[in-house]
Amino acid sequence: MIARLGSLMRQWTFVVPLLAIILLIFTWGRDLPGGVVAVVTVVLAGSVLAAVHHAEVVAHRVGEPFGSLVLAVAVTIIEVALIVTLMIDGGDKSSSLARDTVFAAVMITCNGIVGLCLLVGSLRHGTAVFNPEGTGAALATVATLATLSLVLPTFTTSKPGPEFSGVQLAFAAVSSLVLYGLFVATQTVRHRDYFLPITHAGEVITADDHADAPSSRTAFLSLGLLGLALVGVVGLAKGVSPTIESGVEGAGLPQAVVGVIIALLVLLPETIAALRAARRDRVQTSLNLALGSAMASIGLTIPAVALASIWLSGPLVLGLSSTHMVLLALTVVVSSLTVVPGRATPLQGGVHLVLFAAYLVLAMNP
């Protein structure tokens, strides 16, 4: 038993999530000096890699598209907790944090992750192939959720500024949950085959043949460690957020950059998992992760902040600026043209990456 425990402890993917939780307990709610911030950053990076490992173990056990759903939902639930916590602590200056973080998640997933995966998959395997029926359904849901939750508040007139009235916010929250629930049912029950990876000949890949599936015990252990790793990632990200905010302020950058950095940190596990899938010619899995994360980010965050707004005293700004609406509209159009053929070349990947780069440049220099 002791030898077995020692062997287990030597596996860093088991040790790092526990270390992250311990470090989180000792640093939560405290001002961190520079040396501690450096240690937290290292453990944060290790937690990201450990989360990816355990997510892949769980995904291999349960198969697609359930594996992508597990990681997307787990990351988003903890991301929502982080957003609400920061909004409670931040007061009026965090009134647009939910909007900034959710929109950043949409641009990172739909342009950054999608662009990288299409580029990697097409360069490595000639073309990146995927199922346009499932991917198109996911894209349509993301576009609808983003428009209802982030575009309409700019044009409604019940309240001044880019805010929803109480009734409008309640409608957006309920609609987000309904659409997300319908999509999950479609993805996992009625039309599961639309979201499975396909070969270049168009045949559905029903099983991953690169290794034997892990046992149920191993999968449950990885599921628990995945949860710990993600709690560590988001909690430690909150711990370094004051350093991020002071750095952003010192550099003279807009406050919205904080939301971008938080979203980048939180979405790192999904980014790495999606890239690994693209390298194995499982681009459909990559798109499931990317679009599923965008959908979960909106579909779970908007209801959560709507509920939190009951006791939050400050305003809840959700409406996008005109610049961001243009980027969102262009993303939807380009993504639609990418999805329709069911295959992509490096050109499509490059177009999405240029859109992502444009978002980053305009976030720092609006």
Rank of each mutant, 00 (worst) to 15 (best):
A50H: 03
G292R: 05
G292P: 00
L267G: 04
L291G: 01
N365Y: 13
S47I: 00
V258W: 00
G34H: 07
S321K: 13
A50Y: 10
H60S: 10
L236T: 11
L328V: 05
V333F: 14
G136C: 06
A329T: 09
M325H: 03
L32P: 00
V204D: 02
V354N: 12
E163C: 10
G181A: 08
P65H: 13
V57H: 02
V40F: 07
R192A: 14
A344Y: 00
S322C: 10
G314F: 04
Q11N: 15
T135Q: 11
G115K: 05
A329S: 11
V189Q: 12
I261F: 03
V248M: 08
S322M: 13
A51L: 06
D212N: 13
A296L: 09
F26C: 05
V15T: 15
T76A: 11
L289D: 00
A138Q: 03
V75W: 03
I2K: 14
P341N: 11
L150E: 02
F130W: 09
V58N: 05
C117D: 04
A143Y: 01
N288W: 04
A329P: 04
L139V: 14
T199G: 01
V283F: 03
L118M: 09
P214D: 02
Q187K: 13
I298N: 03
V58T: 06
H210F: 11
A213R: 15
V114Q: 02
A290F: 08
G126S: 08
V106F: 01
D281W: 11
L228I: 10
I310R: 14
Q168G: 13
F171G: 02
V43H: 08
V129K: 09
F171N: 00
M107K: 06
R124S: 13
A363P: 01
H352D: 12
G91V: 06
S94F: 03
V167S: 14
G247A: 14
G161V: 07
